[in-house]
Structure formats: C-alpha cells, structure tokens
Nucleic acid binder design. Structure first.
Lengths: 153, 153
DNA sequence: TTTGAAAGTGCGCGGAC
DNA sequence: GTCCGCGCACTTTCAAA
C-alpha cells in the first residue's frame, strides 16, 4: 500500500500537524483548494495510514511528571524470546514514551517520563527484575529544549 | 499558575490523549459526566496550559522519512552565548524532533528524523559548521518499538 | 456545579459542472 | 477531478436549578 503525495497533500499534512482542530474551510483556503477535495485527500491519507491518531499534547510538568530520562540499554542476550519479553515489558509500561532498537554497541534506547528520580528507580528495578540486562546508562534531562511531533515535509 | 486536577479531569485527559477527535458527548459518557461540565473542564485545562496543541501523528516512513538518529552531543563551551546559538540552531532545524539538555558527561541529546543516512550527514555537517562541538555520537534506530505522546495519568 | 435547551458552526455527502 | 448546497451532528453559550 504505497502512497503518492503531491504538493497539496503535503500542505494539508503541514496544517494538520500544526493544528488539527482547524476547520476544513480554513485548511482549504490556506492550501488553495476547497472543502470537498481537501476532505477527500484527508480521508485517503487516513485510509493509507499516512495520517494516524489525532491527539492533544499534554504538559507533563503541569501534571507533576517532572523527570525525563533517556535510558541506554545493552544486553548480552540476543535470542528471539528475550527480545519478545523485552518488547512486551516496554510496551506495557506507560512511563516509556518511546523505545528504539539500535544499531551498534548500545542495543536499545528508551525515553521514560516519571514524577521524579525515585519513580525512575522504581521503573528501573522493575525493568531489570523482568528482563536480564547487561548494562544500563540513564541520561537525565535537565531541560526540554525542543519537542515537536511535526515531521519535516 | 498551578493546577489542581481531579479524577474526572484526568479521565478526560486520557480520552483526549487517546483520540482527540471524539465528540464531547462520547467523552462525557465515558467519564461519567455530561457535555457542558466536560466542556468547561477542557476549556480550563486549555487556559491553564495543561492541554496544549492538537495534532495528528503522521507516519514518517510513508512520507519517505526512513531514518531516525539519537545524537549525543558533548561540547567544551559552556558560555551563555554558545548555548544561545546552539538552541536557535536546533530549534530552527525541522529534522530535529526533540532536544534535551542533560545532566552529566553528555551535554545534549537530539532526536533527528531524516530521509536517509546521507540526509543525516548533511544535517551533521550543517550543525558542526554552525556551532563548535567537542564530540558527537550518533545512535541509529533500526526499529521504532514504541512511540506514544500519551503521558501516564 | 450540573442540567437542558437554543443558536451557531462545521462536517459529510449528495448532486451539478 | 472541483464547486455548491443541504441535513444533521456537533460545539458553544446561557439560562435556571
């Protein structure tokens, strides 16, 4: 299921990424088209999976979630069932915002948001008790300089 | 400007994080309230900045943005004007999805999304030509195991 | 603070071009 | 394909309890 996107599609995506609450008319005017075609393009991009879920960005600090860690994980085990276990653990934990499998010396990176350092330690203890991990380095964020979900188009 | 959130507020946030396109009626039913009070709570949380921008998540791969790097940056300069320069560079570059200032040996971490390795190299060259950097390590993501914008409530 | 109702707005879909 | 217009659902406001 491949997709071809023209310039108008990309403009629409840009507008939706910036503010998904804009009305069709407004978006249509901005991209130089009108309601129906814009609506059809959006529907197609949704069906194709180009446009995924629609969400709101919530301010973590205002919720009392004040700590953010990047966790570099090295493991000695590389079998399929170990990986399966690790994946399901990471997916099940709501404080893990993001997880990537990496190329190179470090096997995985996690982005973890928690109330404070103690809450991170609880997460860490839970993680290493569930899966065998060779080495963990946690990088503590002091300041979020930039955060965007908007991909460059 | 501190905020007190009760259980209903948190449920509303949860619903909005999961799917911001739901109608007020649906959300109201799920959280056990009705339209107007839910609407007022949402408005207040918006004003307080708890609820930020409303966006759609776009599939990077379907747009041909197939590479994701985590960039660990160490610098030898820690003066205010260097930092200012670094910040504005990072903020101006659309391929930088996320940037944090860290505690510890590594000074900054960036999350960068680009078409491919060559595009990363162009970004890298541009970055080091604009600001003086002591050491850079790039971690290449092979697979995005998890990604969510939904904070744990 | 909630309820219900009323007015305004925008969506989703039909047609005509 | 794009434009027009209608019906319906939704949002937003405002009384009143």
């Amino acid at each position: 299921m491949d997709v071809r996107l023209d310039a108008i599609d990309r403009k629409i995506l840009g507008e939706l990424q910036e503010d998904a609450s804009q009305s069709l008319d407004v978006i249509a005017a901005k991209v130089g088209s009108s309601k129906t075609p814009v609506w059809n393009r959006i529907r197609k991009m949704r069906e194709a999976g180009v446009i995924g879920p629609q969400t709101v960005i919530v301010d973590a600090e205002k919720l009392g979630i004040e700590a953010c860690f990047f966790v570099l994980v090295r493991t000695s085990e590389h079998e399929a069932d170990w990986q399966e276990k690790f994946l399901s653990t990471v997916r099940a934990r709501p404080e893990v915002m993001e997880a990537h499998r990496l190329a190179g010396e470090i096997d995985y990176i996690l982005k973890v948001r928690v109330k404070n350092a103690r809450a991170y330690d609880e997460f860490y203890q839970a993680l290493i008790s569930e899966v065998k991990i060779f080495n963990v380095t946690a990088l503590l964020s002091m300041e979020e300089i930039k955060f965007t979900t908007a991909l460059p188009l």
